[in-house]
Write a protein that binds this DNA or RNA. Structure first.
Length: 683
DNA sequence: CTAGGGTTAG
């Protein structure tokens, strides 16, 4: 801008420069400042608006030094401009520093307190915020909407909803910001129904919502799994011509996606005029979390192709998708991308460790874990879970103790992972010991998952009676999962009488999981209760129709190959089939007996045996054997659980082919080597 | 000169 210079007329200088100062650059302002000093025409008001202008232009040091040591330092408006600028630039700590160092002559007003409280909210400084509140109330701002709303936000943001409500009820006047703060507060406190209730009360109060309120309501619908209401909010937005900005549309995409309406989410996403990194992330995570990992990864590529750099949200979702389908090569390349362009934070680190774990690469997970020095609880938990999943119970325990030594406090999830790790490694004494310490020392009330682990641990090692006693000591009724853990123990330790009564208990709870029903049916078969077997088989047939087809994949030299039982299209199909048949022959010579009880359809025995041979994991293994050199480890990723027959079969194959075979199914890892499986799982 | 907003890890 051109600076008007009227050095001969101080009054004209003053009026024109006040206007000029409003939008000037810091450089221009410095020239103006110099002129004012040279002409000694710097009035109180002019200095204060100059300081404010410096603040707006981003030169906060100049703003402060202009103000200090002049009579204008009592101008609260100028100080507010400085504090606001610190906030805007994302440094709430500096904002608070300026606030705390205000000269006594500058009396803070509503704006000042509002800014200070907002800075405390961003920092999570509840105590600091309360001292600001005391000063604000003393200064007479007890009923100020801005002050109270920002105080409300401080509480709501940090989970103190009780205090937030206290402030809220005694506010004489509430505007839409007040209401939207309450709505968002209840959402982040995990009380979506209260959030929706707040919105209703707002409408009754005659306050109209804007898009910010509606975003809160949409999130509440997402959390409450209320798509109907979510869709009606969507309609409300459209009918009332509210601005469908990126944030609003993104929260709608998330709402539909998280509730399984991926097609609607896609449509909303497709209609967006502007999409940013967060919108893409929401869509990608929607696919990844709904089991459509291939689609998620396709979208991830599209995002990069359309010139949007993935943010950490998109990267985490991409890693999750890679974990789901066991796509190690792509996971590695995402990891590489992160290393080149980001700092490794705990969220990204956890996602990457989990990816390596689920892709069968324990070593890479450990290496990455060792490289992250600033570890949070979830990162530790992920690594402990990783050890457990790979059958390293002792390593999980060592890691757990290391974690305690650093002063990190384990939570319910840590113990779930630890107990599961101990159970699958057969470390019974350690399992009992740590379950007890969890309750008595760490004061964690055992949840269902902990009971499942402990019952599993005991029953697995033949301590079926002890496990059964544990159930009687529980306060709540045992769930299906707990009964199932006990029942597998009964079946494998031939405690058939107890098993039968447990099977009856399970049936009463009307499970529709085929795996659970299969177990129950196998137990009845063991006790020769054939009418019950027939009854359960019928239930299985009914629920079987809802079952998705099993598929297995294997990655060879960076390419994923997917196999399903019915698939005839694979170019190497002939070769694979003859390999399977050859293996089958050798296995039988070594004592393999097909376990046709794992074929749940009514078929001839012979056909059942054939079906077992062509289970997707066996096709994948045959393909792997054909296409890799001797000694190469095979990693198979399966979407469903490996059945008992396949488990047997792979043991033999690992011996015949002299290969290490790792199978990751929907539940865990099975490491096969020399005819044994390291994971103490059974059928 | 001022308050409230979307995605992402075990």
């Amino acid at each position: 801008m051109h600076l008007p210079v009227f050095l001969d007329d101080p009054r004209r200088l003053l009026s024109s420069s006040a206007a000029a100062a409003a939008s000037a650059s810091a450089r221009t302002l410095a020239r103006l400042h110099a002129l004012l000093i040279v002409s000694s025409s710097a009035s109180h008001t002019l200095i204060s608006s100059l300081a404010a202008a410096y603040a707006r232009a981003g030169d906060l040091a100049a703003a402060e030094s202009t103000l200090t040591a002049t009579a204008a330092s009592s101008s609260i408006a100028a100080w507010n401009a400085i504090i606001a600028a610190h906030s805007r630039r994302g440094s709430p700590a500096s904002a608070l520093r300026v606030f705390r160092a205000l000269p006594p002559a500058a009396r803070p007003d509503s704006t000042t307190f509002t800014l200070a409280l907002s800075a405390c909210a961003r920092l999570g400084d509840l105590r600091g915020g309360e001292s600001v509140r005391d000063r604000a109330f003393d200064a007479g701002y007890k009923d100020d909407v801005f002050v109270c709303s920002s105080l409300l936000h401080l509480y709501a943001r940090w989970g103190a909803m009780g205090d937030a409500v206290k402030v809220f009820v005694r506010m004489p006047r509430r505007d839409r910001v007040t209401w939207s703060t309450m709505v968002a507060g209840f959402v982040s406190a995990g009380q979506p129904l209260d959030a929706i209730q707040m919105y209703r009360r707002m409408r009754e109060d005659g306050v109209k919502g804007d898009e910010v309120v509606m975003i809160g309501v949409i999130q509440a619908c997402t959390a409450a799994r209320n798509v109907r209401m979510g869709a009606s909010v969507h309609g409300h937005l459209l009918r009332h011509g509210m601005r469908m900005d990126v944030v609003t549309a993104t929260s709608l995409v998330d709402m539909y996606a998280k509730n399984g309406l991926l097609d609607v989410a896609c449509r909303v996403f497709g209609l967006m005029v502007h999409r940013n990194d967060v919108s893409w992330s929401a869509m990608i995570s929607g696919f990844a979390q709904n089991g459509q990992s291939d689609e998620a990864l396709r979208l991830f590529r599209n995002m990069q192709a359309s010139g949007i750099q993935p943010d950490s949200g998109a990267l985490v979702s991409a890693l999750l998708a890679c974990s789901n389908i066991g796509f190690l090569k792509l996971g590695r390349s995402v990891h590489g991308f992160i290393v080149r362009r980001f700092d490794f934070n705990c969220i990204l680190g956890t996602a990457a460790i989990d990816m390596y774990s689920k892709c069968g690469s324990l070593a890479s997970a450990q290496m990455l874990f060792n490289m992250i020095s600033d570890r949070d609880l979830i990162l530790w938990n992920a690594m402990i879970a990783c050890c457990g999943a790979h059958g390293r119970g002792q390593d999980a325990l060592t890691l757990f103790q290391e974690m305690n030594e650093t002063g990190m406090r384990p939570d319910h999830a840590t113990f779930a992972s630890l107990l599961s790790a101990l159970s699958h490694s057969g470390l019974v004494e350690e399992g009992k010991l740590w379950f007890g310490r969890m309750v008595n020392h760490f004061k964690i009330t055992p949840a269902e998952k902990h009971y499942v682990c402990l019952v599993d641990l005991l029953a697995r090692s033949g301590l079926v009676e002890e496990a059964s006693d544990l159930l009687t000591s529980m306060k709540a009724e045992p769930t299906v999962a707990i009964w199932v853990a006990l029942l597998s123990g009964c079946l494998n330790n031939k405690k058939l009488e107890l098993g039968e009564s447990i099977a009856d208990n399970i049936l009463e709870l009307q499970p529709d999981d085929v795996g659970v029903l299969a177990l129950v049916s196998n137990l009845y078969a063991a006790t020769k209760k054939w009418d019950k077997v027939r009854q359960v088989r019928k239930l299985m047939k009914d629920s079987g129709s809802k079952k998705m087809p099993g598929c297995s994949s294997i990655e060879i030299r960076g390419t994923r190959h997917v196999f399903v039982m019915e698939d005839q299209s694979h170019p190497q199909r002939e070769e694979i089939v003859s390999k399977v048949a050859k293996l089958d022959l050798e296995m039988r010579k070594m004592g393999y007996i097909p376990r046709t009880e794992f074929v749940y359809h009514d078929l001839e025995e012979e056909v059942k045996e054939q079906q077992l041979s062509y289970h997707s994991e066996r096709l994948a293994i045959a393909f792997g054997l054909l296409n890799t050199g001797p000694g190469t480890r095979l990693v198979i990723i399966k979407n469903l659980r490996v059945c008992g027959d396949c488990h047997d079969a792979i043991k033999y194959i690992s011996k015949i082919a002299d290969r290490e075979i790792v199978v990751r199914d929907a539940k865990r890892f099975h490491h096969f080597k020399d005819g044994v499986c390291s994971c103490r799982d059974y059928w």
